[in-house]
């Protein structure tokens, strides 16, 4: 979806032929990875426009896939996005540019969802929250889940003053309606950009509770990812690790969760700097 449209990213950017497809190592047979677009710009800079901060690639303005002007509300976010574009080496690897992707989603809103729909989708995750589903056997894993997941559930219950609980049945825990209402009204206090980020983090970690722990800065990204992948980590301990599958997934999840969390924090903060009064 991205690649077809990236030509439209830039104003007045003349179409050019796609770079040659690199030949697969399979002796010309089978699937070769799709060609990536060359890095067609030299300098990346940011500038302040009317709607916020914009990204310039060699004095041409960056646009979203739907050809809207790419503007972000915070300077730190613009710098982070510019760094993503600047750190592309020879070809542009869109799959490594999570913050750019999140900004594009927030700007274009391709699924056309309203704030209410986003909140409902986020709260619905509570019914199937990873940390609420427990196993009964093997006993070692059940104990691991109890030791690792109970503290974070207890934290969420205390922080939001709700009842969550956990369950070993396939039906999941019985979440009272008041809990859902509390989370709904809490999420409603975030703006649209931050909500897009929160929903992204929730769908990555498969857990509303872990995501709120991240957004509230209660746990680090590494910890949240570890808790989200607890069963996988247990199986890895037992059966061994495969770098191209387990490590790949881990890095991907870490990158996505970190990008989403950073995105939420940068979009929802109202930075006020209070200087101490200097005595002469």
């Amino acid at each position: 979806m991205w690649r077809g449209r990236c030509r439209r990213l830039l104003l007045g950017c003349a179409p050019r032929p796609a770079p040659g497809v690199p030949k697969g190592t399979g002796g010309g047979r089978g699937y070769a990875p799709p060609a990536e677009r060359k890095r067609f710009y030299q300098n990346v800079s940011i500038s302040q426009g009317e709607g916020g901060f914009e990204i310039n690639l060699d004095h041409r303005k960056l646009k979203t896939p739907q050809a809207k002007l790419f503007t972000v509300p915070s300077e730190a976010l613009a710098i982070a996005v510019a760094t993503e574009w600047d750190s592309q080496k020879d070809t542009i690897k869109f799959y490594t540019m999570h913050l750019t992707t999140l900004c594009n989603t927030a700007l274009d809103n391709p699924t056309q969802r309203s704030k209410g729909q986003l909140i409902r989708a986020a709260v619905k995750f509570l019914e199937t929250d990873t940390v609420c589903y427990r196993v009964e056997e093997p006993a070692a894993l059940a104990e691991l889940q109890k030791n690792e997941w109970d503290p974070i559930v207890a934290w969420a219950e205390k922080r939001y003053n709700v009842a969550i609980g956990s369950s070993t049945s396939i039906m999941g825990p019985n979440i009272p309606a008041s809990t859902r209402d509390t989370f709904s009204s809490h999420l409603a206090s975030y703006n649209m950009w931050a909500l897009q980020g929160i929903e992204y983090v929730i769908t990555q970690l498969k857990s509303l509770i872990l995501s709120m722990g991240l957004i509230d800065r209660h746990i680090t990204v590494e910890k949240a990812v570890l808790l989200s992948r607890l069963e996988e980590e247990y199986q890895i301990q037992r059966w061994g690790k495969v770098e191209w599958a387990h490590d790949y997934d881990l890095c991907e999840l870490c990158a996505r969760a970190a990008a989403g969390t950073l995105f939420v924090h940068l979009c929802s903060e109202s930075s006020t700097v209070k200087h101490k009064l200097l005595q002469d």
Binding site: H98, C251, A255
Partner: peptide, 26 residues
């Protein structure tokens, strides 16, 4: 958080180059 993002992206790119970036294997 930003450090985690940058580090994971770098590791992921290295893994991708090593295992997934070259199409089908012989």
């Amino acid at each position: 958080t930003y450090l985690c993002l940058l580090r994971s992206v770098r590791h992921l790119a290295a893994l991708h180059r090593e295992y997934h970036g070259r199409g089908e294997r012989s």
